[in-house]
């Protein structure tokens, strides 16, 4: 079984299409086999050819994606976009397991994204309970092509669809006492097998300062790649904060609460020395256990493509550095 696209990429040849239609790659993705097989199976057979990618690729999603039209948005980006296949099979979404192949394996067939409700409450004049249709109608949809930098040292370029979170904020009218925004993801053990593990504090929580949340770059995201957001990408609704490490962009949101004090965030609770509240992309501040100076761009043309230098604030410095004027970013990492 060969994958022509992968072979061309590995040998450094140019790719014909950047984005393979989903149906096509699903049938091609015959094996997600790695060299080694995890756990006990590794001792009965050490070769890793083969493996079980097919089952999940062909499984029908519980909530099939729908086409979503959007106008080209602000913050244009002309970099080569990550292939849909890569962006939807290499994900960190621990509610479905800690392996990066787990979300694609488990999320589509288990996560029911319709109906969905998002509660917006806390220190606001007009708290709301919003359905998906309300969210899709709230503001004109834009396609925003953003770099995504994972704290683990890899990056992608994703054509998200949504609108600035500030549009929602105008609707609910935060009170003067609101200083922070807290985001909570769904935590339903019936749909999310990863919740059995105690790697993180559930439900997954993240937070932003009010000025970060209202920055035009901060996206309330409802789609990607021209369609509604897939389960493994955090559907049906998530936030995307492109100048921060990926984990700050909470997925499958069920609640947004405006609060006075700095909210708890799951990664910060799990390892405070390693994951600060701010977690801005910063090549000068290493993670406790690895450097953040460079990154592996997923889908770079050849196996021997060099790593790329990581940019301050993930390349959005001009737009956001004003938010942190006078702050010691080594201390507030």
């Amino acid at each position: 079984m060969t994958d022509r696209f992968d072979r061309r990429r590995l040998l450094g040849l140019p790719l014909v299409g950047e984005i393979t239609p989903q149906a096509l790659w699903a049938s091609r993705r015959a094996f997600a086999g790695r060299l080694g097989i995890a756990g006990l199976t590794g001792l009965t057979g050490i070769t890793g050819l083969g493996g079980g990618g097919r089952a999940y690729a062909s499984a029908k999603p519980l909530t099939p994606p729908k086409p979503l039209s959007a106008r080209p948005g602000r913050w244009p980006n002309v970099e080569k976009q990550t292939r849909l296949e890569d962006a939807t099979t290499y994900n960190n979404f621990y509610e479905f397991g800690t392996q990066k192949s787990d979300p694609a394996k488990f999320a589509p067939s288990r996560l029911r994204m319709d109906p969905w409700t998002l509660v917006v409450d806390g220190l606001v004049a007009k708290p709301q309970t919003l359905g998906l249709e309300d969210l899709l109608r709230m503001a004109p949809l834009e396609e925003r092509v953003y770099r995504l930098r994972c704290v683990e040292g890899w990056s992608m370029v994703i054509p998200w669809i949504g609108y600035s979170l500030s549009a929602l904020m105008r609707r609910v009218e935060p009170l003067g006492s609101a200083k922070y925004v807290s985001f909570s993801s769904l935590a339903d053990p019936k749909q999310m097998p990863g919740l059995r593990s105690d790697v993180l504090e559930w439900p997954f929580r993240e937070g932003l300062r009010l000025d970060e949340a209202s920055h035009d770059l901060t996206l309330l995201c409802l789609g990607a790649y021209g369609q509604t957001l897939l389960a493994q990408n955090g559907g049906p609704v998530r936030i995307v904060v492109p100048w921060k490490y990926g984990f700050k962009s909470a997925k499958s949101l069920v609640r947004i609460t405006f609060v006075e004090n700095q909210p708890e965030s799951s990664w910060n609770m799990s390892a405070p020395q390693e994951y600060g509240f701010y977690s801005n992309v910063n090549p000068g501040v290493p993670h406790r256990r690895w450097s953040q100076a460079t990154e592996r761009r997923i889908g770079d043309d050849s196996l021997f493509a060099p790593r790329r230098p990581t940019l301050m604030f993930n390349g959005y410095a001009e737009a956001v550095e004003g938010l942190y004027a006078g702050m010691d970013l080594r201390r507030f990492y």
Partner: peptide, 15 residues
């Protein structure tokens, strides 16, 4: 997997 193509996933270097 390197020369015959495929199977190493989106991040072949890591795999």
């Amino acid at each position: 997997q390197v020369f015959g193509g495929g199977g190493l996933g989106p991040n072949p270097q890591e795999a």
